[in-house]
């Protein structure tokens, strides 16, 4: 009887999703749907938060006042986006600090791109342009995802991120209009970040274990390979326009498909970075863990003070 009930509930749940009716926090949902969402949204949140670090690395060295303000605002937005997303997980019954502890203990994953170092100013350009560009490609379809709080958070995130990509492309454009040193700096950054950006869309569809169910639940609206292709198609003309050379000898326009063909991604590298062996994995996680540990006394003090005020008001 109980099993039968659940299958009826599941059937109704799927009907809602098929009819594009959003699922809201207190609605019945399959346990797997809830867990998959918590995993997906928290990974996304972790990526925003860890993603603050490679760019944060250049805030104090930004070349002029305008760039400094823009970079600060952008990195701050990432903190905001992480916060919106953690909020969405909390509507599913997750606890933000527990999720963050999973990040700090290495249990939880985040986007592998943030494990690459930012070694020159041009990296600020290429990250805004490519990394945020890839993120937008991923995120725009999620504004229509089936879970209401996630979809609403993504609407907000996408609205705010449109400036991120533009400021990155503006940095690249300026560099490519500049001196030979600046052009070389831009090309070098592009060479280093091009392939990792393509890896941001995750393993190829053949190796992606979550995709099918997630598409059915509409918490993922395109497959990894579809999104990757969209990204390549959109980005190549932009790179060519400002005079960058794409570091892929196999890249060519395929008239028949109406898409660019591109070379094989180095999946060994991808999996190594995912497993924690990227150039900055340890630094990134250690930095975030330290921020939390060193701030714990502040959290405790504010709680203690709030308690005192309650007591004083009551007496």
């Amino acid at each position: 009887m109980k099993e039968q009930n659940i299958s009826i509930l599941e059937q109704r749940f799927q009907e809602k999703i098929d009819n594009d009716i959003k699922i809201e926090p207190r609605d019945w949902m399959p346990d797997n749907y809830r867990q998959t969402l918590i995993r997906q949204i928290s990974q996304h949140a972790h990526s925003e938060i860890v993603g603050m670090l490679p760019e944060g690395n250049w805030i104090t060295r930004a070349p002029n006042l305008r760039r400094k303000a823009v970079l600060l605002a952008k990195v701050q937005d990432e903190a905001g986006h992480g916060l919106y997303l953690y909020s969405a997980t909390e509507t599913l019954g997750a606890d933000r600090e527990e999720l963050i502890d999973d990040l700090h203990s290495g249990v939880a994953k985040y986007s592998s791109i943030f494990n690459y170092p930012t070694v020159t100013w041009a990296d600020m350009g290429v990250i805004g342009w490519l990394v945020d560009g890839a993120a937008i490609m991923n995120q725009v379809p999620l504004c229509r995802c089936s879970y209401g709080p996630y979809a609403r958070a993504m609407v907000r995130v996408c609205k705010e991120e449109s400036f991120h990509q533009r400021q990155g492309f503006e940095i690249m454009t300026n560099l490519m209009k500049g001196t030979s040193e600046q052009k070389a700096m831009a090309q070098d950054a592009f060479n280093r970040f091009w392939w990792p950006s393509l890896m941001m869309f995750g393993p190829s569809d053949a190796d992606s274990k979550h995709t099918e169910q997630s598409v059915k639940w509409k918490i993922k609206r395109h497959t990894n390979d579809e999104l990757r292709q969209m990204f390549v198609d959109a980005t190549i003309p932009q790179a060519e326009l400002i005079g960058l050379t794409i570091p892929d000898k196999d890249l060519k326009w395929n008239e028949e498909r109406g898409h660019y063909d591109f070379g094989e991604i180095n999946w060994d590298e991808f999996w190594q970075v995912v497993k924690g062996n990227g150039p900055c994995n340890k630094d990134r996680v250690d930095t975030r863990r330290r921020a939390k540990e060193e701030g714990m006394w502040v959290i405790e003090a504010a709680n203690a003070y709030a308690e005192k005020i309650k007591v004083r008001k009551a007496s």
Binding site: M52, I59, T60, V75, Q76, A79, L83, Y86, A291, G295
Partner: peptide, 18 residues
């Protein structure tokens, strides 16, 4: 600005950047 990304909690990180 040196605090950006290193604040004691996300909310305060955002506040200090403001």
């Amino acid at each position: 600005s040196e605090w950006c990304g290193h604040g004691p909690i996300l909310e305060e990180d955002i506040a200090m950047t403001n």
